[in-house]
Design a protein around this nucleic acid. Structure first.
Lengths: 209, 209
DNA sequence: TAAACTTTGTCAAGTGTTTAACACACAAGA
DNA sequence: TCTTGTGTGTTAAACACTTGACAAAGTTTA
């Protein structure tokens, strides 16, 4: 009975979630697909179609309740499950991610930060002490984090990932230049800041034609 | 005569570029769409179709020359145009981006970093001194950067963007929580690290069902 | 030089996604 | 309570993208 939801829809959910968070924050209680579509620059039809993959959250003649729709999408995304994360690599990227994307407000909990660099070990990042990478195995086996965020150098990424997989980590958010291929039973999300830069470059050069 | 290339194709170009860079680095001179497709986990047909939007870069019976294909894609993406960038916001995110995504290796040049925080002004980031945001107008009018990278707080983003647009900036890479809507004649690329985190969360929770 | 093999560029079929349209449900106002 | 208006959920048509298939072109081997 579980119907398959297309990846395009899933990929749009975080964006809906962000917009609904903003709208909720600004005190608006209800919103129609039409109003939301104008704010987000998509079609109202797409919004209704997307939401209906998961159930009828709206009400005819009324629209959607902002807060409850936001909560529903959060639930679909698994934000209410108390997932925990460890961060591997306390360099600029790791620290930026830790401080930037409000973990807690999304229901995630950062429970450990690791690095091999002696200079970074012991440092305080967002209230957590950076730990020695040597101790990561014991930590993972004890705490069983839901995911690992890889903000390590391109060279060590594959080795680190393999190790963590063998220690039991099942999901990765990878910031390295090279992509991590999802092994059987392992979820991977690769992030490439450079790609965004190149896309912007394309847009600029396209306009110059 | 200029045929329109679909956005899906454009979005894949940076990924091709990355893989070709890696393959080139590992010393391989030629590659067939089939071999590349296996490495990248896409279909060979798609690779050939994508590349043919821009011209026949390959040769029957031979495949593609890695280095020249990489260069061609770079050209399409505008990486050979010597675009310049300024970074606004020297917090964790700004510094991470500056040090992480190899500007120079992609043909970009970071020419200025700005912040309002007195503690950050004067700091050295990747060989550039962080400058006072007050001086940004004069700098932009003098140097005419191709793009601005916004790594500022959610609150100040819109104001900063408006100012920079009025000073003549035509392209933005935006890291703030809220999206910057592309005004007429302005190119925008929004990056949301939190979205990747939510997508990963979805993947994890999906597997738990 | 000829035959066998490889691999592209391209077309058309197949598949997936987006959009418009509308019946039906509910809300709001009189 | 009735009537009017609003806005969802859903269907089907339009559109876009991806894939498989194959002729033609070039490479390699003998």
């Amino acid at each position: 009975m579980k119907k398959v939801v297309s990846e395009s829809v899933i990929n749009r959910l975080p964006r809906y979630y962000r917009y609904l968070t903003e709208i909720n924050r600004s005190g608006i209680e209800r919103i129609s697909s039409k109003d939301l579509s104008e704010k987000m620059h998509v079609t109202a039809s797409q919004i209704r179609q997307d939401l209906n993959c998961f159930g009828g959250f709206g009400q005819q003649g009324y629209g959607y309740n902002v807060e409850s729709l936001r909560a529903e999408i959060g639930k679909i995304l698994g934000l209410n499950r108390g997932y925990t994360a460890i961060l591997v690599g306390a360099g600029n990227m790791g620290r930026a991610f830790a401080s930037n994307t409000n973990f807690e407000s999304r229901g995630f909990k950062l429970i450990g930060i690791f690095d091999i660099d002696k200079k970074k070990i012991g440092m305080d990042v967002r209230g957590l002490k950076v730990q020695d990478y040597k101790d990561i195995k014991a930590f993972i086996e004890r705490e069983k984090p839901s995911m690992a965020i890889l903000a390590v150098s391109r060279n060590s990424m594959h080795e680190v990932a393999e190790n963590l997989i063998s220690y039991g980590v099942k999901a990765f958010l990878n910031f390295s230049y090279t992509e991590l291929d999802a092994a059987e039973g392992v979820s991977v999300e690769n992030v490439h800041l450079g790609d965004s830069l190149m896309r912007l470059s394309y847009k600029i050069s396209e306009k110059e034609e």
